[in-house]
């Protein structure tokens, strides 16, 4: 059952309440969609992917968008190699809050200069209700040095691509790759201990 992996990365999802952070994550990890309850505090999922023959383990932290939990978020940013900034294309305020609130928080708390940012416009399945254009998204991404994609967690459109692009970019960044490898060493060490115990147990 032990899954071997070569690199370990921490990703973070931020954005306003109800934009679909948890849904996006659920869509990515399980391929399902559900009407989810608000997240309390933080939630995370792990997914293994293979990029260029390397096995990666992704720990994706899904933060709560509720205002009360913003005091907590500073600790989430630490050590993240990638951050997914989500807004809802049908609600402009979620887009403006990204620049006014979330991008600033990120600048403030992120410990990693090279951390990759991915801007995600979610809910494109509601095309008729769209208020934030794709052009605006691209513009924002360009100004803030982010990757950009529009997707729909409900219809599973572009969800995989979103995480794929982010991970590819992380792997392309040497400093982040080095961090990812560092995490593995510690991890391997920890894993070996119980294995060794189990082995001796089997012998006797």
């Amino acid at each position: 059952m032990e899954t071997q992996f070569d690199y370990f990365f921490k990703l973070l999802m931020i954005g306003d309440s109800g934009v679909g952070k948890s849904s996006l994550l659920l869509s990515f990890t399980a391929g399902t969609f559900d009407e989810l309850s608000p997240t309390i505090g933080v939630d995370f999922k792990v997914k293994h992917v293979t990029v260029g023959g390397k096995k990666l383990k992704l720990a994706i932290w899904d933060t709560a968008g509720q205002e009360r939990f913003r005091t907590l978020t500073s600790s989430y940013y630490r050590g993240a190699q990638g951050v997914v900034m989500v807004y809802d294309v049908t609600r402009r305020e979620t887009f403006t809050n990204l620049s006014e609130v979330w991008a600033k928080e990120f600048e403030l708390y992120s410990t990693n200069q090279d951390c990759i940012k991915m801007l995600v416009g979610n809910k494109v399945d509601k095309e008729s209700q769209r208020v934030v254009t794709k052009k605006e998204g691209i513009e924002f991404a360009r100004e803030n040095g982010c990757l950009f994609i529009e997707c729909s967690a409900k219809k599973h459109v572009n969800v995989q691509q979103c995480f794929d692009e982010l991970v590819l970019k992380i792997v392309d960044t040497p400093s982040l790759l080095a961090e990812g490898a560092k995490g593995v060493k510690k991890n391997m060490f920890n894993q070996k201990t119980p294995e060794a115990n189990a082995a001796t147990g089997a012998c006797c």
Binding site: S75, G79, K182, G183, V184, K186
Partner: peptide, 13 residues
């Protein structure tokens, strides 16, 4: 508390 991704790995496991 320690906030390192090494720690995260442990927790994840």
């Amino acid at each position: 508390g320690n906030g390192e991704n090494i720690g995260d790995t442990d927790m994840v496991d």
